[in-house]
Each structure stands twice: as structure tokens, then as C-alpha cells.
Amino acid sequence: MNNYKIAFIICTNNDVYYEECTRYISELKIPEGYETDVICIREADNILQGYNAGMEATDARYKVYLHQDTFIVNEDFLTEALAVFKKHEKVGMLGMIGTTHMPTDANCYLSWNVGKVAAYDGTALGNTDFLYQSENKECVPVEAIDGMLMMTQYDLPWREDILSGWDFYDISQSIEMRKHGYEVVVPYQESEWCYHDNGVAGLARYDMERHKMVAAYPEIFKEDVDWNKAEALQEELQTYRNIRSGFATLFETENYRELAEFLEGLRDEEILDTQIREMIHLIDIYQEEEQTQVCHSGLFGAKDWEKISQTYQWIHFVMIRLGYKKDDERYRQLYQMLEQKELSVSAVQNVAVSSLRDGREALQYLIAHV
């Protein structure tokens, strides 16, 4: 075991997100005497299998298991996280948000009450500043942490013997850490250490995995799954997939007014589909440009939903970088696209406002740094 090595372990199925995630990792300040490594796990059957493979592939004592859509914006992350482990020998794992009270139905995502994160849901940036943090700026012991980032200093197998998907691995690992006598904590964060570009959580196998959790840890979880409700959720998700496909066709055939009418009827719903949420935002951009007689931006010139979506995502990534005042070679490209009217200022400003807590100064920062 190399006590001076830190490994980042990432399961990925999307090269664009993986490259964006590792961009932030490459900017982290590495404490003197330490080395880092990035282990990319592709085509894993499930996240537990992937994390076990990553754990076995490195001799690093410290391991950072993180989602491909988690961007570590705090450049001092490694120094501050290592300080927690060195000060508290019994801390086995830390995360960015967590819960001090494990709910009996295992739905921990409804119970997070400690920590901080910037979480993008496909519509806007969620604000978690209300989550409890210690007044003396110490880390807070919790019963479970969210899986967007989980850093360990002790190895325990991920329980792929009881779970086989992409849900509840974080809750299970938190339980296992505490069962083995280690503490799980959320460190104090003056400002968020991570930006989680998670959109709408995938729920395809959620209740199936929750059922396994209830069965595996009966001393903790007492309520079983309502399978009628679970089946209804699956039907709802399939409906959204069908709707999304139809909307994509309307984008590609430039039937924007018809599309706007359909999307208007969904605005007040809790839409469980990230792309539909982004479609609503895109149609707002289109209508604003139409009203102000601004030329239609390159967002819509592609006439191909995949290209429209990719351009939107690219702008979104660059806006995050601008918001956290990170250096980025893409600023020059974005500026040139604006100059050449390949993108409109209103389109970029709209993406900035949805991507950041305060996106009003993003373009000013762009102009000052090109």
C-alpha cells in the first residue's frame, strides 16, 4: 500500500463527461510528496463491480470514487480532504453531502441534511447552502453519504454480492464502513468543493435495488417497496422516453411553435427526464431570440437534435468554467463564435443563468480573459 498515492476511480459510459471530469482533476493542487492516478472503468456491469475493479487495480491508500459528472471545483480538495483523514484516524470515508438519520425506507436522497454541493438538475442550479455544517468548521459524522464523490483511506469490498446496479452502493458502503468500526463524515466546506452536473437521477432499477437493500440490512430498513408504485414509475419513465423522441423530431424538422405548445403543458410538472427539461430551456432561448429579432443561433442551425444537444452541453460546460473562474482554452472559441454570430449573446447568457448561481457576470469575465 502506497501511503502517498491518491487514485481517482471513475466508471464512465460517456467520453465527453469523462474528459470534463478529468479536466478538473488535472487542476487540483497535489500535496508535496504525493502522487495521483486516474483509473477509468469502462463497460462495467454495475458500479459496485467497477469500483471493486478500480480498488484492486491500484496500490493507492487514498481512493476517490466519483461520478463522471462530478467536477471538483476546489483546487485545494486533496489538501483539505487529507487533513481530515490525518486528523481523524478512525474516519474511513468522506463525502460532500450526507445524512445524520438513515430513513427506514432507504430513500436517503430525501434525507440529506449535512454538507454542500452545487447540483444542476437540467433546469437550474440547486442551492444546498441550507444543509447543516459544524459551527466550529469541523467535519460532521453521518450515517450515509451521497455517491457523487466518496473518498476513502481504508479499503472495504463494495457489496456487489447484494447489489447489482447503479443505486444504493453509496448507502451500502456507508453502512459497511460503520459496521467495521470506521466513521463516515462530511467535511466543512466554506464554499462547495464540487459541482454535480447530475440532471435527473436515473430511476430505471431504483426500487429493485432498494428492495435488495431492505433485505440485506433488515436491522436498519423496515419498510419494503410498494411494487404498484414502482411499476407506475416505470410506466411514467417510458412515457417520457417516448415524448422525448417525438420532441427531438420536432426540433429536427424546425416545428418550434408546435414544440413550444407541447412543452408549455409540461412546465408545471416534475419532469423525470433531463433532456426534456433542457428542451424546455432551449425553446425558451429560441422564443427570446425570435421576439428580439436576433439571428437564430448555431444551437438551432444544426437541424439535428444530437448536435443541438451537444452544442448546448458544450456551452453549459464552458459557463461552469467561467463561473468558477477557471482557465480554459475554449473561451477563445466561444468568443469567436459570438463574434461571428454562430451563437447569440442571449443564448449563451440564458445557459449561464441556468448553469450558475449567478451567471450575470459570466460574459463579462469571458470578454476580460480572451
Rank of each mutant, 00 (worst) to 15 (best):
A144H: 02
E219S: 12
A248S: 13
M93W: 02
K326G: 06
Y24F: 15
E329W: 10
L156V: 10
W305K: 02
W314T: 15
G54M: 02
S309L: 13
E264A: 14
L282P: 04
D129P: 00
L131H: 09
K307L: 13
V91Q: 05
D284V: 05
D304P: 00
I271R: 01
N228D: 13
E269S: 15
R332Q: 15
L338F: 10
T249W: 01
F77R: 07
F251M: 01
N350G: 12
A144M: 04
G202E: 13
R42Q: 07
N255Q: 13
Y132T: 13
Y51S: 01
T58C: 08
C21T: 03
E43T: 03
K137E: 14
K325F: 10
P31K: 02
R267G: 05
V64Q: 00
Q153T: 05
K137W: 10
I367G: 01
N52W: 04
T239N: 11
L334D: 04
N2G: 10
N3V: 02
M93K: 01
G323T: 07
Q238V: 15
G33M: 09
I315W: 00
L163F: 13
L363P: 01
E209A: 02
H196I: 11
G359P: 07
S111H: 14
M319I: 11
R23M: 11
D45E: 14
N113C: 06
I39L: 12
F262H: 12
R257N: 14
A260M: 07
I39P: 03
E176Y: 09
G359Q: 04
N136K: 08
I10N: 01
E27H: 11
A215K: 12
Q293T: 12
R205I: 05
Y154L: 03
L125F: 08
V351I: 15
M279S: 02
V84K: 05
L282Y: 07
E138Y: 07
Y51K: 09
Q336P: 01
V348M: 03
W314V: 13
E288T: 10
I271E: 03
E183W: 08
M150T: 08
E75M: 12
F85A: 05
N14F: 07
I97N: 04
S164N: 14
E288M: 11
H369R: 09
A60E: 03
V16Y: 13
E270L: 10
V214W: 02
Y335S: 15
H316T: 06
L156G: 08
H88D: 12
P103G: 04
D328C: 15
I175T: 06
F8A: 11
F300S: 01
T36V: 15
D328P: 08
T128V: 00
H67W: 12
D161V: 08
S111G: 01
A204P: 00
V38W: 09
V114P: 06
P141H: 01
E56R: 09
V91I: 07
F71S: 02
H369V: 05
V348Y: 03
M150V: 09
E32S: 13
R210N: 06
R205T: 15
K90C: 06
A118Q: 05
Q238R: 15
N107Y: 13
I39Q: 05
D121L: 04
L78V: 05
L343D: 03
F317A: 08
P103T: 06
K137L: 10
E176I: 15
R42E: 10
I47A: 06
N14T: 07
